[in-house]
Structures are given as structure tokens and as C-alpha cells.
Design a protein around this nucleic acid. Structure first.
Lengths: 218, 218
DNA sequence: GACCCCGCTGTGAGATCGCTGAGAGCCTGT
DNA sequence: ACAGGCTCTCAGCGATCTCACAGCGGGGTC
């Protein structure tokens, strides 16, 4: 089993490596977030132990980036209890488990083995079309990895189009699902918001099918 | 089991509701096509009983719209035998069963139960003729795997021809089904649009049967 | 071969559809 | 009260689509 440890305190990192190696793991250490991300991307590890506080790229950013890239390698986050960050944050950003320093090596080992046993669970999917990525869990949208801010209506429309990517959706259908059911809204509003999305996300994200509706290519 | 009855004759609708309720179903009634569609979309029904002749939106249009939206709720169509429409039409447009008025309540109940027992089948709803493929769910047409863009009228005509592939369809028949019912259109318009289809999809897709109409080889 | 329909197609006028800028109304936070 | 953001309507325009018309050509019949 190959493990990646991303940790900048070298003493701690080496202690971890010594212990885990003795227990039969192959361990690689990265000293900062950026190199940790690169190593993790290679996909050669069965799990990643990840410190939250890191130079370069924080542990949160690292795991979020991995998940955005559809990389579901098991990640255990390690953090000092400093009140700033808490367990929920780590899990929200896509970590699988979370351990607060100080912790005993035995506990770490037990949780790690549990993590590796766990079946690769169905991940909260991100919706994607071309270089546009929408993460419903985080309500976040990026285009070519650049974050984009959308108003609630724009976001709702985009999510609906993404969830029905590949087929044509009519304007009435969109109004029924994205706008409040009872809303008495001019279908032109849909055209207007498609226009907004195109401006923010790219001219040819949404295809117009004249006389029928819109289609977002899968 | 929740049923949706879409029927504009209130006497008939209420008789149906009374009977079905007595037999243990929960019944909701919609009086026109548009509201029927909205209710059916919510996906809270186990089956839909659908009259063909409806104000607002015909039963055919309703079931076609549902299917285009990937909604596979079991649909049983009910229609008066008036010669205008026939069973094949209803089934072509995606209904699961078809009952001609007048029918006995016992028969309805038996067919309905059969419908509900039937496993929710995956629909292979692409229409095909030669190397032309039309996917109603995605509203997409390809010829030899190359996507082709069709105007609404062209698309409607092609869909109709494909759904009646193998037999000759007359121009009046096409006008009645593809053009708006009330439309007062010169039959030459059909010739014009067949011409458009031939240009876009291949010279010999549609066979002309002089004096009778057109046939699309299955 | 001559004739007559019927269907095909190029042309173009009018209708329709979708896109966009402008701005009004509303809500929220300061 | 005010500013700023969000939602949505409206009107104008440009592009596309629809369809009538008329001339042409090919098939069938005599």
C-alpha cells in the first residue's frame, strides 16, 4: 500500500514515515501543498495523509482541487485544533476522514486501515460540460478552473441545463423547474438568463435549437 | 397507488375517480392537457390515464412531451373510436396501452393492473431508417453519425415519416399531423419540405408514390 | 410521340423567433 | 434614505423559417 504524506514539519513527517513503513506501507513525503498536489495527481497512492496548514497551497485547497479533477483518492486530513478550522470544514471540502492533532499513532493506523477498507463510495458528483464545472455540494462554478460568481437565478438555470445535458430543454420546462412554480414569467426571461450565462461562461456553452429550446452539450 | 386522470368530461372523470378510489387508488383529476402535463411532470403518480381529445394540449402531445423529457411514467390512453385517430398513433407517441371508448370498467381495471405490474422498461426510443437516426429524447438527428440541424417543421415531418415508416402517408395526412390542425396550408408545402429533407438527409430517403403520397422505407 | 398531370425547386415576401440594451421595480445591507 | 445588486419586462433588430407561386421536367396514358 502506497501512502502520500503531505506535511511541512519535517520531524513529524519523518516520525510518521518511520511508523507507517514499519507497519508495511510504502511512504512518500511532500513538504508543501504544491508538490503534494502534483504527486497526488499521479494517482499512484492508495491514500493521502494531509496536513491542513501547509506552505504554498492549503490542505483544503489541495483536496478540493483533487476532487474538482475527479480524483477520489482517499484523503485523511490532519490538523491542529486551533479553533480556526474544524472537522466539518475538512469533510465539506472532500476529505474522507479528519484527525485532530495531537493523536496517537494507534488511532491513526486504525482510521487509516478503515479508510482503505471502505469501498470507493459514490462521490457527490460535480456537473461538468466542457471546461465548465458546477459543484452542487459547494454551490461553486468554475470555468477553466477560474471561479465564476453567478446570481441565484443564473446558478439555478445552469444547474438545470447541466442536469439535462445532451437533450433539448424547452423554455416552459425551464420556467417550470427553475422559476417558482406559480411564477407568471415571460419566457423571454429564459432567453435573457441564457444570455447572461453565455457572457460569463462562454459564448458557445449553450446551443440554441430554434423553435425547440436550448441544449447544453454533454 | 397514485393515479392521474386527464379528462375534460367531468362526469366521466368523476365516475372514473369514484370507481378507482373504491378499488384503493388515490386519484387526482386534471381537466385539460396543460395542467395534466404539469401534474404528470411532478412524478408523483404511478400511472396516468389520458384522454386523447383534450382542450389545450392533446393527449398525443402530452405523452410525447413527457417522453421527450425522459419521463417514463406508465400511460394509458383513452379515446373515442372516431376513425380519425387510431391505436397505432397513441402507441407510436409513447403510450403504454390504449383503450377505445366505450369500455367496461372491469377491462380498464385489469389493463391498468397489468400496466402497473409491468417492469419499468428502459426505452429504446430512437427512430431509424437507413443511416438516418432521430432521437426524440434529445431532439437530435444524425445521418451516418454526422449531426444534422433541422428546422422545427423539417424535424416534425421527419419524425412523422419515421413513425409511419413502411407505409404510404398522404399529404393531407401529413398536413393534419405535422402542421397545426387549423392551418390552411397548400399541400405543396409538404412537397417543399420533403425536398428540404432530401437535401439534408439524402436524395433517396423518402420515396415518392405518385398520386398517393410518400413512403419512407423502414 | 403528344399530351396532361403531378411533383420538384428557385425565388422572394412576410412572419416568427431569439438576442440584446435599457430601464423599472424590488429587496438587502449600510 | 440610499446604493447596489438582482430580476424581469419591453421593444427593436437581425436572422431564420415558412410558405405561396410559377416555371420546369419527368412519367404515365393514349
Amino acid at each position: 500500500m502506497r501512502l502520500l504524506v503531505v506535511e511541512d514539519e519535517t520531524r513529524f513527517a519523518h516520525a510518521l514515515r518511520r511508523g507507517l513503513t514499519a507497519d508495511g506501507f510504502t511512504v512518500e513525503v511532500a513538504g508543501d501543498g504544491t508538490s503534494g498536489l502534483e504527486l497526488a495527481r499521479d494517482g499512484e497512492f492508495d491514500a493521502v495523509l494531509l496536513d491542513v496548514m501547509l506552505p504554498g497551497l492549503s490542505g483544503y485547497d489541495l483536496v478540493r482541487t483533487l476532487r474538482a479533477e475527479q480524483n477520489w483518492v482517499p484523503v485523511m486530513m490532519l490538523s491542529a485544533k486551533d479553533g480556526e478550522h474544524d472537522e466539518a470544514d475538512g469533510l465539506d471540502y472532500g476529505a474522507d476522514d479528519y484527525l485532530t492533532k495531537p493523536f496517537s499513532y494507534v488511532v491513526l493506523l486504525a482510521r487509516l486501515r478503515a479508510l482503505l477498507r471502505r469501498p470507493p463510495l459514490a462521490r457527490p458528483t460535480v456537473l461538468r460540460a466542457g471546461d465548465v464545472v458546477l459543484d452542487p455540494a459547494e454551490r461553486r462554478v468554475t470555468v477553466a478552473d477560474e471561479p465564476v460568481t453567478l446570481t441565484p437565478r443564473e446558478y439555478g438555470l445552469l444547474e438545470y441545463l447541466l442536469r439535462h445535458a445532451g437533450r433539448v430543454v424547452t423554455k416552459t420546462e425551464v420556467l417550470d423547474h427553475v422559476w417558482d412554480m406559480a411564477a407568471d414569467v415571460n419566457p423571454n426571461a429564459v432567453e435573457v438568463y441564457v444570455g447572461y450565462l453565455r457572457r460569463k461562461l462562454g459564448r458557445d456553452l449553450v446551443e440554441t435549437v430554434r423553435g425547440a429550446g436550448y441544449r447544453l452539450e454533454r
